[in-house]
């Protein structure tokens, strides 16, 4: 290992953990000791990552309060160093960490909310596709549904939760003044995170529509998906739900399946 490599390994270890070894590489200052100089970088790196998590999970931070959130985020940062040059990639496993974080045991809805926030972040930065135009839709040979694949617009993410995530998010962000409390016992729902142009949005949908969206994410023919959905929802009209998908601009295309 080169001298440079040894130095960087020791410094990175110190930045995310102990200072003792790295201090021997650093010239003590007149005012600041080697450990204190290193501490500036430790504070800057860890502080930057904690702040990044706060920016990525603003509703979670709002609900938990800055002090609790930052303390929890610091624990996460200590065991999850950044693995990307871009802070946009940092925090994917934060919801899972929250799930296992003992002090959050009394707040079981928090990991679900954080997971929803992560997908909001992904949708915000994703490339997007347009919804199918009415003209193209009219020409789709739906009588050949077994030979067609229905393509959803991008981005579109699905979430199912036992908790009222939209109300919790609104409370965390305090964007809706009428939301001053959330009844967790009111139950959860099926949520879709999507983009309308540049605007990232979240919407609660009915369980049958959600089930149809789940099926449409699979690489199956539209005919097969319709048949499977109908077998699970024999009392419902499929047309009602496909019409809603079109109305919400969530279908991008129907493509012929290449056999």
């Amino acid at each position: 290992m080169s001298e440079l490599s040894k130095l960087y390994a020791t410094m990175m270890e110190a930045i995310y953990g102990e200072t003792s070894l790295a201090a021997s590489y650093i010239v003590p200052g007149k005012v600041l000791s080697a450990a204190a100089q290193l501490g500036i970088y430790q504070g800057s790196v860890k502080g930057g990552l904690v702040q990044a998590l706060g920016d990525l999970f603003p509703a979670s931070k709002g609900l938990l309060g800055e002090q609790f959130f930052d303390a929890m985020a610091s624990r996460y940062v200590a065991i999850n160093p950044s693995q990307s040059a871009s802070l946009d990639h940092y925090g994917e496993t934060f919801p899972l960490f929250m799930q296992r974080f003992e002090p959050l045991a009394e707040l079981p809805y928090m990991p679900d909310l954080a997971s929803l926030e992560w997908t909001w972040h992904l949708a915000f930065h994703a490339a997007s596709t347009n919804a199918i135009s009415p003209d193209v839709l009219t020409g789709v040979p739906l009588d050949q549904a077994d030979q067609l694949q229905c393509i959803l617009v991008e981005p579109i993410y699905l979430h199912r939760s036992d908790y009222p995530l939209l109300e919790l998010r609104a409370l965390g962000l305090m964007t809706e003044s009428e939301v001053d409390a959330v009844d967790i016992a009111s139950g959860g729902g099926c949520y879709v995170v999507f983009r309308d142009g540049l605007n990232t949005q979240m919407s609660q949908v009915s369980p049958p529509l959600y089930a149809l969206l789940e099926e449409l994410k699979k690489p199956l023919s539209f005919g097969t998906i319709c048949a499977q959905w109908l077998s699970k929802h024999p009392d419902l009209e499929l047309n009602v739900y496909t019409a809603e998908l079109i109305k919400r601009s969530w279908i991008a295309d129907f493509r012929a399946i290449n056999n």
């Binding site: 440079l4 930045i15 950044s82 040059a85 940092y90």
Partner: peptide, 24 residues
């Protein structure tokens, strides 16, 4: 330098000022 062995600091860390470092 900002990263080492797959770990990123997302911060701008100073280099040592040596001949090897110049070449590198």
């Amino acid at each position: 330098w900002t990263s080492h062995d797959g770990r990123h600091s997302n911060d701008l860390l100073p280099m040592p000022y040596t001949q090897d470092a110049v070449r590198h």
